[in-house]
Simulated assay, not measured.
Amino acid sequence: MTETRKINPWLKAGLEFGPLILFFVVFMRLRDKTLTIAGTEYSGFIVATLVFIPVLVASTLALWRLTGKLAPMQIATLVLVVVFGGLSVWLNDPKFFKMKPTIIYLIFAALLGFSLIRRRNWLELVMSEALPMRAEGWRILTIRMVLLFLGLAIANEIVWRSMSETAWVNFKTFGLPAIMVAFFIANSKLFERYAQPRDGE
C-alpha cells in the first residue's frame, strides 16, 4: 500500500484549485471574444476549456507525485474532464463540458447509494482515517451526501440550461465549492456526536 506523504497545505490547495481558478480567469478575459485557431473559430469558453484540460492533468499528476495518493473523486474528475472537455473542444460545443458536473455527481450518488445497499460504506473506507466516526454516523452522512450529489446534479442542469455561460462559470467556480464547504460545516454536529477517538488519543 502506498504511503500518503504530507505536503505544504498551500501547495496542495494551489494544485487542487489552481486549474479551476485559471479556467475562470481565462474565461472572464475571453468570454466576449472569438478566437481563430487552425482556421476554426472558438468561443472564449472553449478556449478556457482547452487551457483547463492540460493544466488539470499536470496538477493532478503533480499532486499524485508529491503525495503518493489520489482520492477517487480526483481520479474520476480528471477522467471526465479529459473526456467531456475534450469532446467540447473537438466538437466546438460547450454543452459537453457543462454536463460534466452533472454526470460526476450522479456517479457518486449512485456509488454511495449502492454501497449503502451492499452494507459496505465506501465513504467510510475513503474518509475514516481523516474523520473517525462510528458506523451509524457514516450511514447518516452517506445518505445526506447522496441527497447532496443528486441536488447538485439537478442544480447544475438548471443553471447551464437556463442561464448564461458567465452564470454557469461563476456557479462552477464559486457556487459548487461553497455548497460543499457549507454542507460539511452544517454536518459538524454529526461529526461531534458520532466521533471516535483517533489513534494515540
Rank of each mutant, 00 (worst) to 15 (best):
N170A: 12
G39D: 14
V82A: 11
Y42V: 11
V57D: 11
S164Y: 03
G14Y: 05
L106D: 09
G18E: 06
I158F: 09
A186V: 09
N121S: 03
E165R: 03
G137M: 06
I7W: 01
W64K: 15
Q196F: 01
A182C: 09
L56Y: 06
S128K: 15
F23A: 04
E192T: 10
F27A: 00
V81F: 10
S188H: 09
T49K: 04
I46T: 10
L78E: 10
P72V: 10
T40M: 14
L125V: 10
S59D: 09
P101N: 08
V181Q: 03
S162D: 09
R144V: 03
K69Q: 10
S162A: 10
P9A: 07
F191K: 15
K189C: 02
R31L: 02
V181K: 01
L176G: 08
K189S: 15
L63V: 09
I53V: 13
R193Y: 12
G175W: 04
A155H: 11
F84V: 03
F114C: 06
P101G: 06
A178F: 10
S162V: 09
G14K: 00
V79D: 08
A38M: 13
L176I: 15
F183R: 03
N170Q: 11
L152K: 05
I179D: 01
A110N: 05
V82I: 14
N170D: 12
S88V: 10
V51W: 00
L66Q: 11
A182W: 07
W122T: 14
I143G: 05
S59Y: 05
V169D: 10
L141S: 02
G86F: 01
L20S: 02
L15G: 02
R65D: 02
I46E: 01
L112M: 15
G113A: 12
A178H: 00
L152R: 07
I154V: 15
F174M: 12
L20R: 03
K172G: 01
M1W: 03
L150G: 05
I7D: 08
S128R: 15
N8M: 07
E201H: 07
G85S: 10
Q74H: 12
L80F: 12
D199A: 15
S164C: 04
F24M: 04
R5G: 04
I107C: 12
G44V: 12
R161N: 13
A110P: 03
S115W: 04
F23P: 01
E136F: 00
W122L: 15
L70M: 11
F191T: 06
I37R: 05
L112K: 00
F149L: 06
L112P: 11
L125R: 13
R120E: 13
E129R: 13
W10S: 13
V47D: 02
W122H: 05
L111W: 01
L123W: 06
E129H: 14
L148M: 10
A38L: 13
L111F: 10
E16G: 04
K189D: 11
V81G: 01
M127Y: 14
I37G: 12
L63E: 08
Y42P: 04
L35Y: 04
L78K: 05
R193S: 08
V79S: 11
Q196S: 08
I37L: 14
I53K: 05
K98M: 11
N121T: 06
N187R: 04
G39V: 07
V55K: 00
R65G: 02
V25Y: 06
E192W: 01
T4E: 13
I117N: 03
S164R: 09
A130L: 14
M127A: 13
A58D: 00
V159N: 00
W122A: 13
Y42Q: 00
R120T: 09
L141Q: 07
